[in-house]
């Protein structure tokens, strides 16, 4: 949020930067809104961090004393404003449970979740593009039918069910990948990727199926319904050129929207998957924090998710502008 005010005046000349600035400014109320709702909902959850820390044996007096020390006795709006004041200056507070700075906790874990999301994203899109193009090249043929069957199957399976199946087959039966555990990238790249393979696959597969179906359908619609496709074919160019230069360029817009929306929710998928594979990511951190009523940490996680969703959608919009000349010129 602070970057806007710094970046805007110097780059105001370029329409691209103005678009970014405008969208980032619009993101501010969204993120604040999310943080207010989160704060409010967390306050409705019975129990407090003090209670959790002291255990079931604690007397009300002890709990009250600890709450006072942690600042939990102040009214909610005061606490929220205090939190917001810190957050704006980059101070997300300290964990009620461990006493560590939240920013540091998030940083470590963000690397793990970020890697997981990026892997899933690259795998799903990297496979979906060629599969959808091949399927749309000859609709109704064997490849198309098989890929549609696979993608329907994939769409009907929840990723946590798939995760368990993957563990059963590739970790327990074939022993190709570890079932749980995490090796930092700095320690061993191979070991890291091996540990990330199954969780990334569990997240990537349903996405791959979704992207494939979506893109294939859009491509076929373009090929069968659009006049510019007939023009392209009437020029005498080959079918792949028609598909890639004409249909795909126009189908890309729909795909980018879907991917942009997905990228935001993708980080939510990590919550469950990290739990299954015991990965020390944001999702795991957030679940632990909820259980210990470590609201400061939960709040930070949720706001982080919101920021990621907003940024992903902004990136999708920017990609639009790069690909679709009508948007670029229209924004002036």
């Amino acid at each position: 949020m602070t970057t806007v005010t710094r970046a805007a005046p110097t780059l105001l000349t370029s329409p691209g930067a103005r678009l970014v600035g405008k969208r980032l400014l619009m993101a501010v109320p969204i993120v604040i809104g999310v943080s207010i709702v989160t704060f409010w909902v967390l306050n409705l959850i019975p129990g407090s961090a003090a209670q959790q820390l002291l255990g079931p044996e604690a007397t009300p007096a002890q709990i009250q004393a600890l709450e006072a020390r942690l600042g939990l006795d102040r009214p909610a709006p005061v606490r929220y404003l205090a939190w917001l004041g810190g957050a704006v200056t980059g101070d997300l507070g300290t964990s009620l449970v461990s006493g560590q700075p939240v920013a540091g906790l998030l940083g470590e874990r963000l690397a793990v979740s970020g890697e997981l999301v990026m892997l899933a994203f690259v795998i799903s899109l990297g496979l979906a593009l060629p599969v959808a193009l091949l399927a749309a090249h000859r609709p109704g043929r064997l490849f198309d039918r098989v890929s549609m069957l696979v993608s329907i199957t994939g769409l009907s399976v929840a990723n946590y069910v798939l995760a368990l199946l993957l563990v059963l087959v590739f970790a327990v039966e074939l022993a190709l990948f570890p079932a749980i555990g995490f090796v930092p990238l700095t320690e061993s790249v191979g070991g890291n990727l091996q540990g990330m393979a199954l969780p990334a696959a569990a997240i990537a597969f349903p996405l791959f199926c979704f992207y494939t179906r979506f893109l294939r359908g859009d491509l076929v619609d373009q090929l069968q319904g659009e006049d510019y496709i007939v023009t392209a074919r009437a020029k005498g160019i080959g079918p792949w050129q028609v598909l890639l230069r004409h249909a795909f360029r126009n189908s890309a817009f729909g795909l980018i929207t879907v991917v942009g929306l997905n990228l935001g929710t993708l980080i939510g998928a990590t919550v469950i998957i990290e739990q299954i594979f015991a990965l020390p990511g944001i999702g795991q951190l957030m679940l632990q924090a909820i259980n210990t009523r470590d609201f400061v940490v939960v709040q930070a996680c949720v706001v982080l998710f919101a920021v990621v969703a907003v940024v992903a959608n902004l990136l999708a919009d920017l990609l639009y502008a790069v690909l679709d000349p009508r948007i670029r010129y229209g924004s002036r």
Partner: peptide
């Protein structure tokens, strides 16, 4: 196609690819 028999269609708005520059669309032919 294009070399023996070429075609011009009814709706020039829908018959050109909206995402490609004019020159590139002619050059492709």
């Amino acid at each position: 196609r294009g070399a023996d028999i070429a075609m011009v269609f009814q709706d020039p708005t829908r018959s050109l690819n909206p995402t490609m520059r004019i020159g590139a669309q002619v050059a492709e032919a």
